[in-house]
Structure formats: structure tokens, C-alpha cells
């Protein structure tokens, strides 16, 4: 098991192998993610039962929770990729770091927007400086900061390494921000889905949520692979295998 993982790590570290991996995975990853997302959203938005206290307005959970979890996981993934890029100077980690940012930033924005729309009927306000909302706003700022830094530095490798350092510092920061705002009174409801222990949500509402969540994560993964594939081609444009690839396409 460990050996297989290690071989995978080294193989995916090679741009050429990574490109082939993308070509093999993307044709089914995109349709599967879209299908899951459609299924989960239609099930959740149309067929799931009405919630007793919040009525139909709770249904935004099927967009809000997947987007929030995606934004958070994307940033953590950026931190991990950043650490790998800084410590082992792995080129593909730099590529992944860059590819992770735009979709993650969009998800953070979606999370804030749907949260505001959900907050109005439930709490009576669009915005409140509550711990989780503030953390998500800071997360969006961090995403935008990383994208700004990347676009400001011309050399792609230097830009990626600078962003890697910022991402690692940012991950530490997100953790402290979360605790720093928690001593303010929190308005937000606790986590509904729990990996360990009983979830506080009925199965009829949980399944569409899980499906749309996995669907969105896979869509994020597909987006990252597509961006990374383009970046790999652009970085390796002078190498033999890319030239051969272009020649074969033209022929």
C-alpha cells in the first residue's frame, strides 16, 4: 500500500505522466461530477422533505455546505501543496497550487453569498460578524491575496514558490483566525454532518447533501486538473514530448 502510494507520488511528479493521467481521468471525472451534482441538487432542492422550523429556506444548505467545505478543503490542499513545493521543490506541487486557487476563491464567494441569503430568513440579517462568516471572509481574502501575488510575479516558478510560502503561512493563520473570532458570540449553527457520531440531520435530507457535496468536490478536482494540465503544457512547451504531442495533433 505504502509502496504504491510512493510510486504514485513520484510518477505524478513527472509532468509527462501527470498529463497522461489527466487525459485518462478527466473524460469520466467531469461527467460523473456533473451527474452527481445534478442528482444531489434536484433531490435536495425539489424532493427532500420540508424542514420543521426553517421551512423551505433550509434547502440552500445543498449549495451552501458543499461550497463552504470545498473552499476550506481547497485552501488546506493549497497549504499542503505549498509545503511540498517548498520542501521538496516538486514542480507539480507548484502547478497544483496555482490551479487550486481560482475555483476555491469562487467557492468561498458562493459560500458567503448563499450564507447571506440563508441568514436573512433564519436570523433576520444578511450579515453578522459571526465566527464562521468572518473566517470565510478572511479565507476569501487569503485566496485573493495568493492570486494577486501570483499575477504580480512574472517568472512562473518564482510566482509559484512565493504563493507556496504565503499559502503555508495562511493555513496557520486560518486556524488562529477561527479561534480568535470564536470568543465573539457565535450565531452560526453547529456542524450538521459529523464523520464520527450521530449526525443531527435526517437521512432523507442527508443523502442529497452528501451527493451534492461529493459532486462539487469532484467538479473542483476536475477544474484543478484542467487548469494544471494547461499549466503543464505551457511550462513544458519546449520539451520533446509536448512538441511531439502538438505535431501529432496537427497531423
Amino acid at each position: 500500500m505504502w509502496k504504491t502510494l510512493k510510486r504514485w507520488y513520484h510518477q505524478l511528479g513527472s509532468p509527462r505522466y501527470f498529463y497522461r493521467f489527466c487525459e485518462a481521468v478527466l473524460p469520466w471525472l467531469i461527467p460523473v461530477s456533473l451527474a452527481l451534482l445534478t442528482l444531489g441538487l434536484i433531490w435536495g432542492l425539489v424532493y427532500a422533505p420540508v424542514e420543521r422550523y426553517q421551512g423551505d429556506s433550509y434547502r440552500i444548505i445543498y449549495i451552501h455546505v458543499p461550497a463552504s467545505s470545498g473552499a476550506l478543503m481547497g485552501y488546506i490542499a493549497m497549504g499542503v501543496a505549498g509545503l511540498v513545493a517548498l520542501v521538496w521543490r516538486m514542480k507539480m506541487a507548484e502547478v497544483m497550487l496555482k490551479a487550486l486557487a481560482p475555483f476555491g476563491a469562487a467557492l468561498a464567494a458562493v459560500s458567503l453569498l448563499t450564507g447571506a441569503l440563508w441568514g436573512k430568513p433564519t436570523w433576520g440579517t444578511y450579515w453578522q460578524w459571526d465566527a464562521r462568516m468572518t473566517s470565510m471572509l478572511i479565507l476569501l481574502f487569503l485566496y485573493l491575496g495568493i492570486m494577486a501575488l501570483q499575477s504580480a510575479i512574472r517568472d512562473p516558478r518564482q510566482a509559484a514558490r512565493a504563493a507556496a510560502l504565503l499559502a503555508v503561512v495562511g493555513v496557520i493563520n486560518v486556524v488562529i483566525v477561527k479561534y480568535s473570532v470564536e470568543w465573539l458570540n457565535t450565531l452560526h449553527q453547529g456542524a450538521t454532518l459529523k464523520v464520527v457520531g450521530e449526525s443531527s440531520i435526517d437521512a432523507s435530507m442527508k443523502w442529497p447533501l452528501l451527493i451534492s457535496m461529493i459532486g462539487l468536490w469532484l467538479l473542483y478536482a476536475a477544474n484543478v486538473l484542467m487548469r494544471a494540465r494547461t499549466e503543464v503544457l505551457s511550462r513544458e512547451r519546449r520539451s520533446g514530448w509536448v512538441r511531439r504531442l502538438v505535431r501529432d495533433e496537427e497531423a
Binding site: L142, A148, L149, I153, L166, V169, G170, N173, S180
Partner: peptide
């Protein structure tokens, strides 16, 4: 990280201010 860049000031603020929150 921004030492070599011409537009240091505002970029520095965008990078650093979120990190100052805690």
C-alpha cells in the same frame, strides 16, 4: 515576497492585512 516588485505598497497590504486579523 514583494521586494522585487514595483507595485509593492498596495499588494503588500492585500497580502498582509488578512494575516493581521488574529
Amino acid at each position: 515576497l514583494t521586494v522585487g516588485l514595483n507595485r509593492g505598497g498596495i499588494l503588500l497590504a492585500v497580502l498582509v492585512l488578512p494575516l493581521y486579523v488574529p
